[in-house]
Design a protein around this nucleic acid. Structure first.
Length: 478
RNA sequence: CGGGGCGUAGCUCAGCCUGGUUUAGAGCGCUGCGUUCGGGACGCAGAGGUCGGAGGUUCAAAUCCUCUCGCCCCGACCA
C-alpha cells in the first residue's frame, strides 16, 4: 500500500493541521524570501473566485477599478502622523535603482491611502467631481515579525477601495455600505457567518476616525478579521490637501473612506470549513464543484467511458464547474482521497453497474453521504445538492459559532472560558484603553469589535465593573 | 526582535553523539515495461546528491569547532 498523505488531526495540533491542509490541498508553496509565499493554481483559483464575488459587488455599488503604483515616496507617509506611526515599522524600502542610491527612498506600499490621496488632490476641484469611487486589486507589503501562510504574509494580495465624498454623512454611509458588501459576500458565498461591528479605538486603522470590521470564527475558536471598512473623516484630505469648491462657493475638505479584504480570506475558508480529511470548499467558491471519476475493471473501461464522456459534456453545458478525472495511472480510491483533500464539494462515480441501472453515485464532501442518483434529471439533482451543501456549510459554521460563543461579566470568567472552551466571549466594556490592555495581558484576547445587533447588552465592564459604554466580542485573534 | 526546532535525492527523513566498510542510505515520488482498477494497487528495471554556504581541526569530515545564510514553530507587533 502506498504511503498516504497525512494530515495531523485538528484536535491534536491545529497549527500543524492547517499547514498540512494547505500543503496537501496544493494551495501554496513557500517562497525563497521569508514570509512570502507562492499561490499555486489551486490556491489562486480560490482567490479568483473571491475576486469575482467581490468585484461584481463593487461594480454594482458604483465603483470602478483603477491601479496605483506600488512604490510610494517616503515623504508621503510623513504627512499623516498616525498613519506613519502605524505603518513605518513594517515597511520594506527601495533605496537604490540602476546602481545609484535614490534621493528619496521608496516604500513598497503597505496600503495606498497616501498615494490615492495625492491623486485625489489632483482629480478633485468641484463638488461636481464627487463622489470619487475607486477600487484597486493589488499586492501590498507588511514586514510582519511572524508570518503564517494566507493569514499573515510579508506580501499579500487584496483589494482596497478608496472613496472621496462631499460630506461626513455620505462618507459614513459609504463606509457601512461596503462593510455590508463584505458581510453579504462572506456569508452568502463563503458560507461563513460573521459579526459586523465597530473596532475599539486601540484596534482602529492607523489614520482612521472609525474602523469597522467583520469577524469570523475559526475552528480553534480564534477570530479572523475578514474585512474592514474605515471612515477617515478629513484626515487624509487635510494631509494631502484634497479640497473642493462647494455650491456655497467655499472650499471644503472631502471626507474619505477606504475598505479592504485580502487573501487571508483563503485562510479563513480553510480554518473555518476544513476538517481532518482536508479542505472543504463552499460550492459558490469552489473552482471545481463536481469531480467525475470513472470506475470499474479495465476491460469494461470503454463501456464506462462511452457514458462518462457525454455525461461530462452535459454537466459542463449546464454551467456546473465540473472536472473529469479519467486518468488510468491513479486508482479510484486514490482520487477519492485526493479530491476530498482539495475540498471539491461533490464527487460523481460511474461504473458498469451504474450504467446498467441508469444511475450514478454522488458523494457529498460536507457530510460524506453517498447518494444513488438517476441519470435522468441529473443536472437538477446536482444543482440542488450544490445549493444544499452551500446552505449546510453555512449552518454548520453558524452552529459551531453558537456552540463556542459565551458571555462573561468578569475577567476571571473570561479567562476561564477562553482556557477551557475557546471561542468568542461577549462582555461589557467601559470605554477605557487600560481595561482593554488588561484583558489582553490576562487572556491574550482582544476586543474584536462592538457588534451591530449584539445578542445581548452587557451592562458592566468585564474588567473594572464600571457601567459599560459598549458590548464587545472578546477573542484571541489571528 | 527573543525562545525552540531544523537545513543530507523532488518530498519526508535515517546516518552525526562515539570522524574511517557508506562506493552517502531508506520510504514515498519520478522514468520505462507489464499486470491491476467500486476507498490511497503490485512486480521488475532505472534516473536522481558538490550532505545550506564559508573557514578551520585532522592522515581522514555529512559527522568535531567557528562564523554565516535560510526555513518552520512558539511569544511581543499586525490585514
Amino acid at each position: 500500500m502506498a504511503e498516504e498523505k497525512r494530515i495531523t488531526p485538528m484536535a491534536q495540533d491545529f497549527s500543524a493541521w492547517y499547514i498540512d491542509v494547505i500543503k496537501n490541498a496544493d494551495l501554496m508553496d513557500y517562497a525563497p524570501v521569508r514570509g512570502c509565499m507562492i499561490f499555486k493554481p489551486a490556491g489562486y483559483a480560490i482567490w479568483e473566485a473571491i475576486q469575482r464575488g467581490l468585484d461584481s459587488r463593487f461594480k454594482a455599488t458604483g465603483h470602478e477599478n483603477a491601479y496605483f503604483p506600488m512604490l510610494i515616496p517616503e515623504s508621503f507617509f510623513n504627512k499623516e502622523k498616525e498613519h506613519v506611526e502605524g505603518f513605518a515599522p513594517e515597511l520594506p524600502w527601495v533605496t537604490e535603482a540602476a546602481g545609484e542610491k535614490l534621493e528619496e527612498r521608496l516604500a513598497l506600499r503597505p496600503t495606498s491611502e497616501t498615494i490615492v490621496g495625492w491623486a485625489f488632490q489632483k482629480w478633485i476641484q468641484s463638488w461636481r467631481d464627487l463622489p470619487v469611487l475607486v477600487n484597486q486589486w493589488a499586492n501590498v507589503f507588511r514586514w510582519e515579525k511572524r508570518t503564517l501562510p494566507f493569514l499573515r504574509t510579508s506580501e499579500f494580495l487584496w483589494q482596497e477601495g478608496h472613496t472621496a465624498h462631499a460630506d461626513e454623512k455620505e462618507a459614513r454611509e459609504e463606509t457601512i455600505r461596503m462593510l455590508n458588501v463584505y458581510v453579504d459576500f462572506v456569508q452568502n458565498e463563503m458560507a461563513l457567518p460573521v459579526w459586523e461591528g465597530q473596532k475599539t479605538p486601540s484596534e482602529k486603522f492607523a489614520g482612521a476616525i472609525d474602523t469597522y470590521s467583520i469577524e469570523a470564527m475559526m475552528k480553534d475558536g480564534k477570530a479572523v478579521q475578514a474585512g474592514t471598512s474605515h471612515y477617515m473623516g478629513t484626515k487624509f484630505a487635510q494631509a494631502f490637501n484634497i479640497q473642493y469648491l462647494d455650491k456655497d462657493q467655499t472650499l471644503k475638505f472631502v471626507h474619505t473612506t477606504s475598505w479592504g479584504a485580502s487573501t487571508r480570506l483563503i485562510g479563513c475558508l480553510v480554518m473555518a470549513h476544513g476538517d481532518d480529511k482536508g479542505l472543504r470548499l463552499p460550492p459558490k467558491i469552489a473552482p471545481v464543484q463536481l469531480v467525475m471519476i470513472p470506475v470499474g475493471p479495465a476491460k469494461l473501461r470503454e463501456k464506462v467511458l462511452a457514458r462518462f464522456d457525454p455525461l461530462f459534456q452535459q454537466i459542463k453545458a449546464a454551467g456546473i464547474r465540473v472536472k473529469a478525472d479519467a486518468r488510468e495511472e491513479y486508482s479510484p480510491g486514490w482520487k477519492y482521497n485526493e479530491y476530498e483533500l482539495r475540498g471539491v464539494p461533490l464527487r460523481l462515480e460511474i461504473g458498469p453497474r451504474d450504467i446498467d441501472n441508469n444511475v450514478v453515485i454522488i458523494v457529498r464532501r460536507d457530510t460524506g453521504e453517498k447518494i444513488t442518483a438517476s441519470q435522468d434529471g441529473l443536472i437538477d439533482i446536482i444543482n440542488n445538492l450544490l445549493t444544499d451543501i452551500q446552505q449546510n456549510m453555512y449552518n454548520q459554521a453558524l452552529q459551531f459559532r453558537q456552540d463556542h460563543s459565551f458571555e462573561a461579566t468578569t475577567l476571571a470568567e473570561l479567562t476561564d472560558i477562553l482556557d477551557k472552551q475557546f471561542g468568542f466571549v461577549l462582555g461589557g466594556w467601559c470605554g477605557s484603553g487600560a481595561c482593554e490592555e488588561e484583558v489582553k495581558k490576562a487572556t491574550k484576547a482582544t476586543a474584536r469589535n462592538k457588534p451591530f445587533g449584539a445578542p445581548k447588552q452587557m451592562p458592566t465592564c468585564i474588567t473594572c465593573g464600571q457601567p459599560s459604554v459598549a458590548t464587545v466580542w472578546y477573542a484571541r485573534g489571528y
